[in-house]
Structures are given as structure tokens and as C-alpha cells.
Deep mutational scan, measured.
Amino acid sequence: TIDDAFRAIERAIQAENEGRYREALKHFLDGGEMIVTAAEKEASQKVRNLLLHKGKEVLEWAEHLAEWILE
């Protein structure tokens, strides 16, 4: 659900702030994927587009974090 997705993102932010970057990455990926999944089930085109945009933002952040971890 969207609530689960945002809880995962909150955990990711907390982990990132505490320097637990790999854990943060996992939570960002989980949250982003949950948002995209919820968007695919959404009946309203406007809400679907907003959710897809937010999911994409979260997944892009996860990608940047992963690249930073690997440096």
C-alpha cells in the first residue's frame, strides 16, 4: 500500500541519516517499487501519473545512492 511505501521511505531516510547506507538503499528501493505497484492499480489517471512520478523519483534517488556506495 501507499502507507507501507511511505513507511519504507521514512525508514530509508532515518537509516541514511544514521549512516546505514545499504539499509537505506534497500528501504528506498522497497518504497519506490511499492509506489509504482500502487500506481499500476490506480483507477484515476491523474493519481496514477502522480504516483508514477513519485515512485520514479524515489527509485532514481536509490540509484544515485547505490552509485555513491560503490565509489
Rank of each mutant, 00 (worst) to 15 (best):
A15M: 06
A43E: 09
W68H: 05
Q14R: 11
L25S: 00
E42Q: 09
A8D: 03
A39D: 02
L70H: 08
I9N: 00
I69T: 01
K26C: 14
A38K: 02
E71T: 12
V36A: 10
K56L: 09
V36P: 01
E57C: 15
A66E: 03
E60G: 08
E10N: 07
R7S: 04
R11Q: 11
K56A: 10
A15F: 11
A24P: 03
A43S: 10
V36F: 12
I35C: 07
F28C: 06
N17C: 14
K56I: 05
R20W: 04
I9H: 00
G19V: 02
M34T: 03
A5C: 10
W61I: 05
L52Q: 04
L59R: 08
A66F: 11
E16P: 01
H53C: 13
T37W: 09
D3I: 14
A8F: 12
A43D: 14
T1R: 07
E67S: 08
N17S: 13
G55K: 05
A12M: 06
E60K: 11
K54Y: 15
E42V: 13
N49D: 15
S44Q: 04
A62K: 00
A5G: 02
A5P: 03
E63T: 14
A12G: 15
E33Y: 15
E18T: 06
T1S: 12
K41I: 06
E71A: 12
F28Y: 15
A39L: 10
I9D: 00
K56D: 03
K46C: 14
H64P: 01
F28G: 00
H27W: 14
I13M: 05
H53A: 14
L52V: 05
R11D: 06
G32N: 09
M34D: 02
H27S: 04
I13F: 07
E42I: 13
L25M: 07
R20P: 01
N17F: 11
E63K: 14
R7A: 10
E33V: 13
K41N: 12
L25N: 00
G19M: 01
A5H: 01
A39R: 02
A5L: 12
R20D: 02
V58C: 05
D30R: 12
N49K: 06
E10L: 10
V58A: 07
A5N: 01
G32T: 08
R11F: 07
E63M: 13
T1N: 05
H53F: 10
L52P: 03
L29V: 04
E23H: 06
W68T: 06
H64C: 13
A8I: 14
F28E: 00
N17V: 12
A66G: 07
I13T: 02
L50T: 09
A38E: 08
K41V: 06
E18W: 06
R48M: 10
F28K: 00
A15I: 05
E42P: 02
H27D: 04
H64Y: 08
F6S: 03
G32I: 15
R22S: 11
T1H: 09
D3E: 13
A38N: 04
R11A: 12
A43C: 12
A15D: 01
K41M: 08
G31I: 15
N49F: 11
F28R: 00
W68N: 01
Q45W: 08
G32M: 13
I13P: 00
G19P: 02
L50G: 05
E18Q: 07
L50R: 10
R7V: 05
I13C: 14
E40D: 06
H53T: 12
L51A: 01
I69N: 01
E67F: 09
W68V: 04
L25A: 02
G32Y: 15
L25H: 04
V36I: 14
A8G: 00
A43H: 08
E16Y: 15
L65M: 06
I35N: 02
Q14V: 08
T37Q: 15
A5Y: 07
Q14H: 10
I9K: 00
I9A: 01
I2H: 01
T1P: 09
D30K: 12
D4L: 10
L29C: 10
A24I: 01
L51G: 02
R20S: 04
H53W: 09
D30H: 13
E57M: 15
L59H: 03
S44I: 10
R7Q: 10
K56W: 11
Q45E: 15
R11M: 14
A66R: 13
D4S: 08
L52Y: 09
Y21F: 11
G31V: 11
E63Q: 14
A38H: 07
H64D: 06
L52M: 10
G31C: 09
L29D: 02
I2Y: 10
L51N: 00
E71W: 05
N49R: 07
D30I: 14
A38S: 08
V47K: 06
L59N: 01
K41L: 06
K56C: 14
V36N: 08
L29W: 05
E40G: 10
A43F: 09
R48I: 07
S44T: 11
A66Y: 13
E63D: 08
H53Y: 09
H53D: 11
H64A: 11
I2E: 02
E57V: 13
G55T: 05
